[in-house]
Design a protein around this nucleic acid. Structure first.
Lengths: 339, 339
DNA sequence: GACCGTTCCGGAAGCGCTTACAGTGGCCCC
DNA sequence: GGGGCCACTGTAAGCGCTTCCGGAACGGTC
């Protein structure tokens, strides 16, 4: 007792102190098999005295599992990703798994990082445009259950997404209802599968209604500053669009700021819409499309858990509904449709 | 080649295939010792053929380290925590560590979860009011380097916080400058060390200026809805305060909504301030105190890394500066002080 | 009293790596 | 031509657990 031992006690020391075998200590601790009450008591006492905590590595190695799973996402910045990750962590932890996170954004060689992550977990979810499909397939082939989130299906993997398609169509219909005909799309459809879908549906909806979609999107990153710069360019240019459809709320928020700077009134001079329905959208009066972020994360965690438990059920694909949230930035409305 | 083996190949199979010992395979792979070029080539070829990936558990057990560290926070919801976590993940990953996250919010028995996390990492940071000091001390005693973030120092642990004190004082001074004398504080100082400090400094600043601080805070959770409800109660009650100082931006955002509902104009009828400077604050014209969230996380990760590397340097304590961001919600200003 | 089932426990074999230690040749040098 | 060094490789001892297998003790049954 005298000198505190810095080293963690091992199961051997506990066994020795009690005068039993390590097998008995293990059994007493996990309650997996018969152990005499008195023996168990003495084991627990020794555990207490020695401050023994079983090594997670030893356990995992012996059990052949990590009791952990991971989530890969492009970036945690922005409310969207963090909400999804939170939803994920919440149920993963509930199901007894530790969660490892990996943000690939801007990192060199994300593939290596993802493969590395795959070696420390029993399962993982890959979100959005993080690594190439080939890498995902490679991970899945190593036997690590994988579920895809907000990204196009790859092979026979469970995939969960939000309904970008209907969301975009409803948004376009609403805007057309306001009478707008000249549109611009802000954001880069190539950097996120979700946005690819949204942009595609946006164009399709316009075409279906007999209107010509813009020639090309105004490419910009998905943050406020990039949206701000892109919007300035578009709004200051010739033949100003009547409506700016933005890839996400951050871009739209930047666009709102740009419009204000240019002395333009929203929605009178230009309508602006976002996507995600982040908190700021509400205060900016931004019309947007709501995504069930927590639920996306939670569902992914649950599905992954099923697969890790060995489920051989048919591949699951689900598209969670989105909801058009009409606020003031898209045009005049008689009554507040949403708050 | 014929049938894909579901099982991961082990180092033994690689060794057998090449006709060398596992030691040689290990050496060839990690490059830690002499291996004949030709041998290495053959090893790498076998690795490729068998799709061998070393087991992280085997490695960790042998090396005696996890190559991972963890962060514990109360909740990821809200932009504040997610930004800190992102800043943390960014540098931790850069330094070669996987990141485990654990949100304690609302979970039963957070202590057990934290202790469990401690067993799977080489070091961890504990943020805010998550577990009792005793648990933190216990973790630290097991030899897992620990750094504290946005929480009062415990024992000889590195601790990093934001400057709540000066922030709150500057805020109060500014509000007094507007002529306000009747204040209310929204938020529960007992649920976050940061807020405890802010509230304390808020009262002290008022007292120092010869004014009487409010008798007690208006306790509410740190989200928009709670802020909204609390503000409604306060604003609709008798002797309406002239200024609502809120524990964080979310509460303040809720308060803004409440004021609007009650037909009160901000800041004419009531001034409202927040804390954190989240994105929405900008669009809501909210006067607030900016915190360097990314930097908090990044610094914690760096310090933790030093400790994990065995640094025995003196205990580090740092208080990162905060910045008063004046917008429209606190009163009339001749020119925009901040955007 | 032989037999059997139950309870309890120890021995030992893994799990998949890393690395200390001990060679074994080959080559160079005096 | 013997000694020494260097490049390279194998042996084996861990790392700290879990769990299979089998043995011992004990009580109850026919």
């Amino acid at each position: 007792m005298a000198v505190q031992d810095r080293r963690q006690a091992t199961i051997y020391e506990v066994a020795q102190r009690v005068g039993v075998s390590i097998a008995t200590v293990s059994r007493a601790l996990r309650g997996t098999d018969y152990v005499a009450p008195e023996t168990r008591r003495r084991v627990l006492a020794a555990v207490e005295e020695l401050q023994f905590r079983p090594s997670r590595l030893g356990q995992s190695l012996a059990e052949g599992r990590h009791a952990a799973n991971g989530i890969v996402f492009p970036d945690l910045s922005g409310p969207y990703y963090s909400e999804v990750v939170l939803g994920y962590e919440e149920v993963a932890a509930e199901l007894g798994n530790s969660v490892l996170i990996l943000a690939t954004h801007g990192r060199p060689d994300p593939a290596r990082k993802v493969l590395e992550l795959a070696r420390r977990v029993d399962g993982m979810v890959v979100m959005g445009r993080t690594v190439a499909d080939g890498i995902v397939a490679q991970v899945a082939e190593t036997g690590v259950p994988t579920v895809l989130l907000a990204r196009a299906a790859v092979g026979a993997l469970d995939t969960i997404t939000a309904d970008n398609d209907s969301g975009a169509r409803r948004l376009v219909e609403h805007l057309l209802g306001h009478g707008y005909r000249r549109f611009a799309y802000l954001g880069d459809p190539d950097t996120s599968p979700d946005v690819t879908d949204r942009y595609g549906a946006f164009r399709a909806a316009l075409a279906d209604a007999g209107h010509t979609p813009p020639r090309a999107p105004v490419r910009c990153a998905f943050d406020v500053d990039a949206g701000h710069r892109a919007a300035r360019r578009v709004l200051a240019g010739p033949s100003r669009p009547q409506a700016l459809v933005c890839a996400n709320d951050e871009v739209a928020l930047g666009a709102l700021a740009a419009a204000a700077e240019l002395g333009l009134t929203v929605p009178t001079d230009v309508a602006i819409t976002g996507w995600d329905d982040v908190m700021a959208a509400r205060y900016a009066g931004l019309t947007t499309v709501h995504q069930p972020m927590r639920k996306l994360g939670a569902t992914a965690a649950r599905w992954l858990h099923d697969r890790m438990a060995g489920s051989q059920d048919a591949v699951r694909r689900e598209v969670l509904p989105t909801r058009l949230v009409v606020r003031s930035s898209c045009g005049p409305h008689s009554a507040e449709t949403e708050v």
